[in-house]
Amino acid sequence: MTKELLDLLEKQASSSGLLLRIQVRRPLNLWTLRLVVGRYLDSEKVKILGELKGWAYHNSSGLQLDTMQVSNDAPIGVGHLIWASTMAWALEETPCKKARLLAIYDDAQQNKILIRYFQRRGFRNVKEVGSSPVDLPFRMVWGGAGSLMVASCSEVYEYSLRRWEATRSIVVGN
């Protein structure tokens, strides 16, 4: 499969003064992903502005998302670029059509904020992961309780791409 979507996003990031890099490893039919957006501070130093980590199994249809972080001083649009790039990678390089994540339950207010954020991207709540024995595998994978959410990779990509492109002129202006 071609890498047209991801190549386009990398060029857009570069023209906006940002660096987009993906680190992928393939141990034992498992893709592990770390996608990073940064900005050059000088010719040898890069400041990481945000990242997303995840994994996918070779014969699975789902991308598992774990850590998503954007620094407080990142330019507007960095989160959208990260989401669009992650989904572009999944669609172009893996059999994944869906993505899932756990909106961790640290406290009620933070959980509501996370759920609302993920729902805007197209994720829907499919299960509350709690303390039941049935939930143990989910808790081991994601490290806690929360709301298990699933979305179409193409829908998350389309939403995030629109938002990224709408904010690019603001990022370039910084």
Rank of each mutant, 00 (worst) to 15 (best):
residue 18 L to T: 02
residue 56 A to Q: 13
residue 73 D to A: 10
residue 91 L to V: 03
residue 76 I to C: 12
residue 38 G to L: 03
residue 88 A to I: 02
residue 48 I to S: 05
residue 67 T to R: 11
residue 45 K to H: 12
residue 55 W to Q: 12
residue 54 G to L: 13
residue 24 V to N: 07
residue 15 S to A: 14
residue 84 A to P: 06
residue 58 H to T: 09
residue 74 A to D: 05
residue 67 T to S: 06
residue 65 L to D: 00
residue 17 G to R: 10
residue 90 A to T: 08
residue 83 W to D: 03
residue 29 N to M: 10
residue 21 R to M: 13
residue 57 Y to H: 03
residue 32 T to F: 09
residue 87 M to I: 07
residue 23 Q to P: 00
residue 23 Q to I: 11
residue 30 L to W: 08
residue 24 V to E: 08
residue 20 L to H: 00
residue 13 A to R: 05
residue 64 Q to I: 01
residue 38 G to R: 02
residue 31 W to I: 10
residue 53 K to G: 03
residue 15 S to E: 14
residue 17 G to W: 10
residue 70 V to H: 01
residue 21 R to V: 11
residue 21 R to L: 12
residue 38 G to V: 02
residue 72 N to C: 06
residue 40 Y to E: 10
residue 17 G to Q: 07
residue 64 Q to V: 13
residue 12 Q to V: 04
residue 85 S to M: 06
residue 69 Q to V: 15
residue 60 S to K: 13
residue 47 K to R: 15
residue 73 D to Q: 08
residue 37 V to S: 02
residue 77 G to Y: 05
residue 41 L to N: 05
residue 19 L to C: 05
residue 89 W to N: 00
residue 12 Q to A: 04
residue 66 D to A: 11
residue 87 M to H: 02
residue 39 R to K: 15
residue 76 I to N: 04
residue 33 L to K: 01
residue 76 I to D: 05
residue 47 K to C: 12
residue 43 S to F: 12
residue 55 W to P: 01
residue 41 L to I: 15
residue 41 L to G: 06
residue 65 L to N: 01
residue 34 R to I: 09
residue 36 V to K: 02
residue 14 S to N: 14
residue 22 I to H: 11
residue 66 D to N: 13
residue 23 Q to W: 06
